[in-house]
Amino acid sequence: MDDQELQAIEANVRLAVEQLGPLSDVDFGLNEESVEWVEGFIERRRCRPDFDPEGVDGLVGVLGSFLGACLVAATGGGWRRTGDGWGVLLPDGSTAFPFVKVRKQLRDGVESGESIASFYRVAVHFIAAGRLRENPAAGD
């Protein structure tokens, strides 16, 4: 089952790049600039009068797959299934859950602090890089 689910994630990533890339004004791919563009895309969707935050499972699947693939590309991590669902295992051993974050932004928006771009930056530049670990020398 995991292989089929991973293939579905990869298909979602391809779909996101194929469909969103031409709409964007950035060099769209598995990079931070594209994550920032997708964050704006989510916010623009949320503003539409026909937006239903309960009917977003397909969008969560595609955009969560894309966000996770961006994390994998930036950190060298990998997809892993946990009891909480699919996440990205980061080099420091922690797991980031891109599907959960996309759903939260779709439901609550950046004005409530749910930003996939911030999630990406913290995961890549701080957690995966080991910069959030306590400095052992600080206790001396």
Rank of each mutant, 00 (worst) to 15 (best):
T82N: 04
L23G: 05
K101R: 15
A137P: 01
L106T: 11
V110K: 14
D92I: 02
V124D: 04
D92F: 01
L20M: 12
R81C: 05
S65R: 11
R103T: 08
Q7G: 00
G58M: 09
R121T: 10
R133I: 01
F119T: 11
L15F: 11
D2S: 13
P136T: 01
P91M: 06
G113V: 02
I127Q: 10
Q7I: 03
D57N: 11
S118Y: 12
G87C: 11
G87W: 13
P49I: 07
G139W: 05
S94F: 08
F28P: 04
V124E: 09
A74E: 08
C70E: 08
F28N: 01
L63Y: 11
A129V: 02
S34N: 01
R80P: 01
Q7Y: 10
E43L: 14
V102T: 11
G29K: 01
D92M: 05
F97N: 07
D140S: 05
V60W: 13
D2W: 03
D84C: 04
G21A: 03
L30F: 07
D50K: 08
E114W: 05
F126Q: 09
V122A: 01
C47S: 15
A11S: 15
E39G: 12
Q105P: 06
C47N: 13
E43V: 02
N31I: 08
G139H: 10
W79H: 14
A128C: 07
L59K: 03
V124Y: 09
P22A: 08
L132N: 04
E43T: 08
R133F: 14
L30G: 04
D25P: 00
A117G: 02
R46D: 02
V62G: 00
E36R: 10
F119R: 08
V102I: 15
G68A: 07
C70P: 02
L30S: 06
I116E: 06
T75L: 00
A8V: 12
I9T: 09
P49R: 10
S34E: 05
I9A: 01
V62K: 03
G55F: 04
T75V: 07
A128Q: 00
L59F: 02
S112F: 12
E18N: 11
G83A: 05
G109M: 07
T75F: 06
L6W: 15
A11F: 03
E54W: 12
L30C: 06
D84R: 15
A96E: 15
S34P: 00
G113N: 03
A16E: 06
L15I: 09
G76H: 13
W79V: 13
R44F: 05
G85Y: 11
D84M: 15
Q105M: 14
